[in-house]
Amino acid sequence: MKYFYVKSMGTVDIHLLQELCEGLQALFPYPFRIVQNMSYPLYAFEPRRSQYYAKKIIEQLLCEIPGDCEKMLCVTDVDLCTPVLTFVFGEAQLDGKVAIVSLNRLRQEFYALPSDCAMLKDRLVKECIHELGHCYGLYHCHDSQCVMFLSNNLISVDNKQRDFCDQCKEFFRTKIIKETHGQE
């Protein structure tokens, strides 16, 4: 039996994680397991930018993957970046096992706006589906309504749906079938 592991890193509300799993369940055909981890990934901290390198966290998580893990999704409240980008909402291994999404820039508060839990949850679900899509080999989609559309700002995150477009859905479905058969 394979599981989707949803792992928190830093300060992440458990209720938000539970709601996230409910949101993901509609698309991903595996049971979810939540693992809470309160510590911060200091090994990935970049002091000059006061941010955390997403790829370093992914590399560390890869070393911690349980044997029954289908994919591991990490949710953190730290601000993520890459060496070439000023920030990322999330990062994933293309056709790999691990993805990470940051709550930091998905929160209204980051932009000095009043907090909105429903909005945060909606954005988190979308970005998690997006990053997990990369783990299944999906590229960015040109359809701005598709969850695989590249979002560099909250307007485009809010604008897209929580679902794949027909083309991405077909690719994803085929991939899941292939992987399931591969395991058998």
């Binding site: 790829k55 890459t82 070439v84 990369h134 590249l150």
Partner: peptide, 14 residues
């Protein structure tokens, strides 16, 4: 690190 970071990101973009 720059090469891998940029190429990973571009690959995600197809």
């Amino acid at each position: 690190i720059m090469r891998s970071s940029l190429s990973d990101w571009l690959r995600e973009d197809g």
